[in-house]
Design a protein around this nucleic acid. Structure first.
Length: 272
DNA sequence: TGCCAGGCTGATA
DNA sequence: TATCAGCCTGGC
C-alpha cells in the first residue's frame, strides 16, 4: 500500500472519460483497475491517493500507466484564455490523464466500441476476458481475468464472439486477431512507429477506421497528437468552432484537449 | 414498437 | 470519390 499527494489526478474522471473500460468506481472514494496481470484498488480523498499495491509495483507499472510524471497543468496553461468553452471544459476535467494502456487490449476495446455504449462495452470485454482470458487469484482470494492474447482469439470462428454480446463486431475482433497472430501486422513494430505511420498500419486491421485508429493511438501508444472524432466531437466542434478547432495552437497535445471537450460534452453540460 | 448509440464495410453510382 | 444500407443488441 502506498499513499501519495497527486495534484490534478481524479480517478473518477478517468473512470468516466471513456478511455479505459476495465477501470470502475467501486465505492464513494474507491475504484478498481485491471491491467495486464495486475488488479489494483485505489482510494482517493482530495489529492491524497492510496494505491493498494507494493511500492515496487507502483513504480514499475502504475506510475507510468497513469502518466503521473507529466504536468497536465502545463497543457492547460497553453489554452487560449479567450476560448471560454475550452477553458471551462479543461477546468471541469482537470483530473483527467491520458493512460498508457496495452495496445492489443485497446484495439479490441475500440473495435467493440463502435455503435455501442459504455456499460455494454464493459460487459462485452468482461465476457471475453472471462471466457478466453486467464484467471488470476488475488491475495484477498478474489478472482479476476486477464485480457486474452491475440492467439487465443485468432483460433475462433468469426461469429464465436457473438456469444460474448459483440454482435456484428465479432468478426472484426477475430479477423484482426488472426492478422496479428499470423504476423501480417506487428504490434511490436507499431509501438515503435510515429503517429502517422502507426495510424496507417492500424487502418489495415479489419474493422478499424479513422476514429478507432485515433483512439488506439491516443490511449495505447500515447500519441497525444491523435484527435479522435466521434459523433459527440463532431457536434461540439460544429457548434463551438465554426472555423475549425485550432489544432495548430495545441500541436503535439491536441489529444489532451480532445479529452477535455469529450468529457465536458458528456458530463459537464448535464451537471451544470 | 421503433429508434438510436463513442463506426465500419462493401456495394453502387 | 461519394453516398448509403446493413450490421448486433439493449435501453428508452
Amino acid at each position: 500500500m502506498i499513499t501519495k499527494e497527486i495534484p490534478y489526478f481524479d480517478i473518477f474522471q478517468i473512470c468516466n472519460s471513456g478511455q479505459c473500460f476495465r477501470m470502475q468506481q467501486t465505492g464513494d472514494d474507491t475504484c478498481q483497475v485491471i491491467a495486464g496481470e495486475y488488479n489494483l484498488k485505489i482510494k482517493q480523498e482530495g489529492s491524497r491517493c492510496t494505491f493498494f499495491c507494493t511500492e515496487e509495483e507502483f513504480e514499475s507499472f502504475w506510475e507510468d500507466y497513469f502518466d503521473l510524471q507529466t504536468d497536465y497543468g502545463a497543457y492547460r496553461d497553453k489554452i487560449n484564455p479567450k476560448d471560454s468553452y475550452l477553458y471551462q471544459a479543461a477546468e471541469f476535467g482537470k483530473g483527467i490523464r491520458i493512460l498508457k494502456q496495452d495496445l492489443w487490449e485497446m484495439i479490441v476495446s475500440f473495435l467493440i466500441s463502435q455503435q455501442n455504449n459504455i456499460p455494454r462495452i464493459r460487459r462485452c470485454i468482461q465476457n471475453i476476458c472471462q471466457q478466453y482470458g486467464k484467471s488470476v487469484k488475488t491475495e484477498e482470494g478474489d478472482t479476476f481475468y486477464t485480457f486474452p492474447k491475440p492467439e487465443s482469439l485468432a483460433v475462433l470462428g468469426e461469429d464465436d464472439l457473438k456469444s460474448c454480446n459483440l454482435g456484428y463486431r465479432s468478426k472484426y475482433v477475430v479477423r484482426t486477431a488472426r492478422m496479428i497472430s499470423n504476423g501480417e501486422v506487428s504490434l511490436e513494430e507499431i509501438e515503435k512507429m510515429s503517429y502517422k505511420k502507426a495510424k496507417e498500419e492500424l487502418l489495415k486491421l479489419f474493422g478499424v477506421g479513422e476514429k478507432v485508429a485515433d483512439c488506439i493511438c491516443l490511449f495505447a501508444l500515447h500519441h497525444l497528437e491523435a484527435f479522435p472524432m466521434d459523433t459527440h466531437m463532431i457536434q461540439a466542434l460544429e457548434h463551438h468552432y465554426k472555423r475549425g478547432f485550432p489544432k495548430r495552437r495545441y500541436q503535439g497535445f491536441q489529444g489532451v484537449m480532445q479529452q477535455y471537450i469529450f468529457y465536458w460534452e458528456l458530463f459537464g453540460l448535464k451537471n451544470g
